[in-house]
């Protein structure tokens, strides 16, 4: 809007009013910029909430620290099952020797879901060939940098209780 400011510009060089007008023009520009940013933010916020809502609800759901797996106590020896715990896959293994262990099934390398391999006696990740110890979840070979996160297992009558350590 150059027109509006034009008439206020004085022809007298070095006039004090000139400087005042330049400052005022800058001030108005800055004010308009700020109003624009505020307007965009006021519209952006609902859009952000609209997009983020399910992720936040899922995160809230994932906050569980304990889970009961009804009927899992009948899992045969030497086999495993995958279940959902805190929004992520987890592994429950009933070993040949009768012991029970449970780990997060999320590979510590790049988050593929790992698999219990009975014959090879290991936990294996197919994505980049990482392997973990099937009793402790410790990373043995391949790219995984850390052991699988272990969970506490409690076998009860008719169910298995899993809890974060």
């Amino acid at each position: 809007m150059p027109d509006k400011t034009k008439k206020t510009v004085s022809t007298d060089p070095g006039n004090r009013e000139d400087k005042v007008n330049v400052t005022r023009r800058k001030f108005i520009r800055a004010g308009m910029g700020a109003a624009g940013v505020a307007y965009a933010a006021a519209l952006g916020y609902p859009v952000y909430r609209y997009l983020a809502d399910p992720a936040e609800k899922a995160a809230a759901q994932a906050a569980e620290t304990e889970k009961e797996l009804v009927g899992a106590d009948t899992l045969p020896q030497g086999s495993a099952m995958i279940f959902r715990f805190g929004g992520q896959p987890a592994l429950l293994i009933h070993h040949e020797d009768g012991s029970w262990v449970s780990f997060s099934a999320v590979c510590t390398h790049l988050a593929c879901t790992v698999e219990f391999q009975k014959k090879e006696k290991r936990i294996h990740c197919a994505c980049h060939g990482g392997t973990y110890d099937m009793y402790t979840g410790k990373n043995i070979s391949g790219p995984p940098p850390k052991p699988l996160t272990p969970f506490k297992v409690e076998v009860l009558d008719g169910k298995v209780k899993i809890a974060r350590a």
Binding site: P46, V47, R49, Y50, D53, P54
Partner: peptide, 8 residues
Amino acid sequence: ELEFGWFI
């Protein structure tokens, strides 16, 4: 149910 879903 969705936050601001009614608005969009």
